[in-house]
């Protein structure tokens, strides 16, 4: 479209700001909101507050990581909330065999759902939104059946430690999320799989003709996403100290997609911003926290989120039209 000169010459002024906005706007927004809170919200600049916000955002970050990878392949995964519910439902059922077994079964459920999604998308050729809709609808129902439709309290100290324990003064939950962020970023940047993922998302047909195992890449992406969702599911259980299959992860697919999009990852695939996704989730968490701390109604928070999403989409559109 344009000439080589574009990239060589540093763009100047407003145009430069606008071209960077989709990628970095989310950090700007987080910064502004932090500044506002530091000035106007009592007890905001405290360790205990930082702790709470990080703990609350951790499960969304973990789910959003997987979602970002799927969106990077020009897909979408609606089933993450149901996968969380399945994982949550299975945990109390198998705790009798020990923590490791229970977690293993939950993660295995994630792998199974990921395989179903991946095979439907990659081999059967369904559109991702349709393929994952099946589990979105059926997965939670299955979870409710598996758990007998009952909320179950968790008392296993090891599980509870995951949700409320500390390691070196930092919550275990936050450690896990941080490690997963680093891991996913590493996989994306440094591995064969990560680079293939971006190529498949950027131009699936070209990736096929280049001899890439496109189907395998897609299936792996959906498995990773589902496993991350089941991790988030079992961490949620550990945190609320009970397993409620009908409530865990409800509507989280929307929060995750929002975090990914607000973080500057285009829905058209081929590019994934991991740190942006984390910042997107943090931004949404900060909006909710600000609303709660100032005792504003939930509808206000929803409207604020809507505005943020619209701005994010608008900014992304600006970039595309250039």
């Amino acid at each position: 479209m344009t000439k080589n000169a574009v990239a060589e010459r540093p763009a100047a002024g407003l145009a430069a700001v606008r071209s960077r906005l989709p990628g970095y706007g989310v950090y700007l927004a987080v910064g502004l909101l932090m500044l506002y809170n530091i000035v106007f919200t009592p007890y905001f600049l405290t360790l205990s507050n930082l702790r709470i916000q990080l703990i609350q955002v951790a499960p969304i970050v973990i789910v959003a990581l997987g979602m970002a990878l799927v969106i990077g392949t020009e897909g979408i995964d609606l089933s993450v909330g149901s996968v969380m519910a399945l994982a949550a439902a299975l945990i109390p059922l198998y705790l009798g065999y020990g923590v490791v077994a229970a977690i293993g079964v939950s993660l295995a459920a994630g792998v199974a759902v990921g395989l179903i999604n991946g095979v439907l998308v990659a081999r059967v050729g369904l559109q991702p939104i349709v393929a994952t809709l099946a589990v979105f609808v059926g997965g939670r129902g299955l979870a409710v059946v598996v758990s007998d439709g009952q909320l179950k309290d968790i008392r296993n100290p090891d599980v509870l430690h995951l949700g409320s324990g500390d390691l070196l003064g930092i919550p275990v939950l936050v450690w896990i999320a941080a490690v997963l962020v680093a891991l996913v970023a590493f996989v994306l940047r440094r591995t064969v799989f990560g680079r293939r993922l971006l190529a498949v998302g950027g131009n699936r047909r070209a990736a096929e003709l280049a001899g890439l195992p496109v189907g395998r890449v897609l299936i792996t992406v959906y498995v990773i996403c589902a496993v991350l969702a089941s991790i988030a599911g079992l961490l949620s259980v550990a945190r609320i100290q009970s397993s409620d299959a009908s409530a865990v992860g409800l509507l989280i697919e929307l929060s995750a997609i929002t975090a990914v999009v607000v973080g500057g990852t285009p829905l058209t695939g081929g590019r994934v911003r991991i740190l942006g996704t984390v910042a997107g989730a943090v931004l949404m968490q900060l909006v909710i926290a600000t609303m709660i701390k100032h005792d504003l109604g939930p509808s206000t928070a929803e409207m604020a989120q809507a505005v943020i999403i619209l701005v994010a989409v608008w900014v992304a559109r600006e970039r595309k039209s250039r």
Binding site: L198, A199, G202, N203, R205, A206, A207, L209, G270, R271
Partner: peptide
């Protein structure tokens, strides 16, 4: 464009 390059990479 459609089958060769990956424009975004």
């Amino acid at each position: 464009k459609a089958e060769g390059i990956v424009a975004g990479l």
